[in-house]
Design a protein around this nucleic acid. Structure first.
Lengths: 110, 110
DNA sequence: CAGAATCCTGCCGGATACTG
DNA sequence: CAGTATCCGGCAGGATTCTG
């Protein structure tokens, strides 16, 4: 961690924050970190999200190269979502966030 | 990283995201990670921020226990901001975010 | 099942001016 | 210097309905 001025758009930290800053971005990535999932599966596994938001953020994640969308020519339709390597590489970030959250957000009694 | 349902408010990851999700939160933490700074110093070291936002996010950070505000009874007034241990502990998260950002957001040519 | 199309609202974040 | 006090527009994000 060098002492460099963080002017937002040249800073890798804030740029990363922008990529994963959507309200449901992290839950989606988390849900896909170990397994491919279909749209409805995703929707069910993420409590509180609604269709529109899921579609929107998935598209954004796809545009950012974090998620792969695979369409099957079947009836009923089937679409599977999975993480790219770029997406999977976020795992370290998630791990650190979880670590910090558990330590400082839930163990306040200790 | 266990396979647990992430229902937002019980999930340490998304809770952490909420704490550091303000637009200028990370730049502020970054600016304070190695040194205490006065208000104006902070404002100058973070490109693009304005007074109102800096005040607002600093207050939020203080409420969340990430930042300490120390007021000196002097004229002209002097207020110094520094990170608590809780705040400093976010360094690991920042490091991972920077790592990821550098690798996947800036080295796309490679 | 996997979305697309609308509609609506809060509040996030920016600009600007003023104060002790 | 270290902040308040207002004003304001845009859009993130939610609810709901419809389609192939």
């Amino acid at each position: 961690m060098s002492e460099k001025k963080c002017n937002y758009f040249e800073c890798p930290i804030t740029r990363t924050a922008d990529v994963i800053g959507g309200k449901w971005t992290l839950p989606i990535i988390f849900a896909l970190i170990y397994e491919t999932k279909r749209f409805k599966e995703l929707e069910r596994s993420i409590e509180g999200i609604n269709t529109r938001m899921l579609v929107k953020e998935l598209k954004q994640l796809e545009d950012n190269g974090l998620v792969i969308r695979k369409v099957f020519a079947e009836v009923p339709p089937r679409v599977e979502y999975s993480l790219t390597d770029k997406g999977k590489a976020l795992k370290n970030v998630l791990v650190e966030m979880r670590e910090w959250g558990n330590k400082y957000l839930f163990d306040t009694i200790l």
